[in-house]
Every structure is written in structure tokens, then in C-alpha cells.
């Protein structure tokens, strides 16, 4: 199977401290890659490096078979959608007006706006300003912006943060449907093990900036059949970290 994203010895230092250390990540095409790790493990920094929002101190990133450089970054990211940390939205505008801004920059057809609004079920919000949206609705709007160009690669950083159980379920179903319906490769990060367990095909576990496990999720269960997934995760990341 072709690899959509690979990182080689990816490292990021802040003030001499390695936040991400020699990370080798392999994300296969058409799969959901769960990027799991405790708070402060380096998940967001890694994803930001993939998007060129943070400059790596060392290492290489390859996306769609092309080495990511400052010159080809935008060309590669044209086929990538992202939702990093909290969603970006202009609170004084409606959902449609928000998406119109990104649609204008991306140069994609205007009908995509209706389509993505329908996918995230925000198509009936009319003239409601996004500042009046609930957290779940804002998160769905963030996902709609990420989906606007129907990218080949979708990078979602903790997309269920702050959502209620129904919202989490809804977001999870939506993410799971993306590879089948639109052929997308999805990288989704989370610090919640059960969430990744229900979504991901492959998994990468990161702790203190280092990759502790990478491979199919089903194989993680096989590491020690006598232990629960949570116990295996804690063994890998260290018991002193918070989940």
C-alpha cells in the first residue's frame, strides 16, 4: 500500500529541549491513522510541522511522495485539509460567509460550500452568526473548512475536544466515513485511547516526543493478550503520564 505521509527523523527543539524527537511516521493511503499520545507528547507540534506551520529543527517530511520544502509546501497542501486545535472561524460571519473566504482562496467551485455544509449538517443555519454557535457546531464548521476542497489528506488535531458524547459519536461516524466515501487519508490525533480505538485502522503512539509504537491497531492488542489496551498504552507511554 502506498504511503501518503512519511517523516524521517523529524525533530523539533524549543529552547534546546526536544519536543519531537527523531520521529518516523508512516501513514498509508486511504486509511485512518490514529495519532495517540498523552497531553504534551508532541502530537500537535508534529501535525503543525506536516502543515508547515512550525519549522522542523531536523528531519524530513514527505507527503504524496514529494519531500516537503518551503517552495512546494503550498502546492502539496492544496490537496490537504486541516483542523488544528480549535477551529478557525470569523465570529461576525455566518458559516456560509466563512466558507466563502476559504473557497475564494482555494479557487474551488462554490457548490462545494453547500456540499460540505450538508456533510457536517450545518446547512440549515441560515443567517446565524458563528459566534452564536455551540462548541460542537464550531468544530463541525472547522471540519467543513478542512473538507472544502475534498482533499486527499485530512489532518485533524483532537477534533472531538470539548464535544458532548453525542457530538463525539457524530464526529467519529463522519471521520470514519471519509476514506470510504471520498477516498481520503485521515490523520486524527487524540489523547483519548477509546476514541482512537473506535476510529483508526493504523496507530502511532507518541510519548515525550518519541514514537513508541506504530502499526495496525489490531496488532497492538496482540502485544500482550493478558492486558487491556489501556494497560498496553500505559506500558508504552509510561505510567506517570496523564491520559
Amino acid at each position: 500500500m502506498k504511503e501518503t505521509v512519511t517523516t524521517t527523523m523529524l525533530t523539533k527543539e524549543y529552547g534546546g529541549i526536544e519536543c519531537v524527537s527523531h520521529l518516523n511516521m508512516n501513514v498509508k493511503e486511504g486509511r485512518i491513522y490514529g495519532f495517540l499520545g498523552p497531553n504534551g507528547a508532541g502530537k500537535s507540534t508534529t501535525l503543525k510541522m506536516l502543515l508547515g506551520l512550525v519549522r522542523p529543527t531536523d528531519g524530513e517530511i514527505t507527503i504524496f511522495g514529494k519531500r516537503l520544502t518551503s517552495k512546494n509546501r503550498l502546492e502539496i497542501l492544496r490537496s490537504t485539509g486541516s483542523l488544528i486545535e480549535s477551529p478557525s472561524y470569523y465570529g461576525h460571519l455566518t458559516a456560509r460567509e466563512n466558507l466563502k473566504i476559504y473557497q475564494t482562496i482555494l479557487g474551488v467551485p462554490e457548490k462545494n460550500i453547500d456540499e460540505v455544509l450538508k456533510i457536517v449538517r450545518l446547512d440549515r443555519q441560515g443567517k446565524k452568526k458563528t459566534s452564536a454557535y455551540s462548541l460542537g457546531m464550531k468544530q463541525r464548521l472547522g471540519l467543513a473548512s478542512a473538507l472544502l476542497s475534498f482533499p486527499k489528506l485530512l489532518i485533524l488535531d483532537e477534533p472531538t475536544n470539548g464535544l458532548d458524547p453525542a457530538g463525539i459519536q457524530e464526529m467519529r461516524d463522519l471521520i470514519c466515513s471519509l476514506p470510504k466515501e471520498y477516498g481520503m487519508t485521515v490523520i486524527v490525533s487524540s489523547h483519548i485511547l477509546s476514541e482512537i480505538d473506535q476510529m483508526a485502522d493504523d496507530i502511532g503512539i507518541i510519548a515525550a516526543g518519541r514514537m513508541k509504537y506504530q502499526g495496525e491497531l489490531s496488532r497492538l492488542h496482540e502485544i500482550d493478550r493478558n492486558k487491556s489496551l489501556e494497560e498496553i498504552f500505559l506500558d508504552l507511554t509510561g505510567k506517570d503520564v496523564s491520559l
Binding site: K48, L51, G52, L53, L74, L77, T80, S82, I84, E85, S86, P87, S88, Y89, Y90, G91, H92, Y102, I105, L106, S145
Partner: peptide, 16 residues
Amino acid sequence: TEHKASSYKQLFTLEK
């Protein structure tokens, strides 16, 4: 407008 929207992280992936 941009700071409140936290939009730089989105815009920087779309444009120089």
C-alpha cells in the same frame, strides 16, 4: 479579525 478567528493556522496552509 484574524487574531479573534485564530485563522492564521488555516490561512497559512492555503496561501503564502
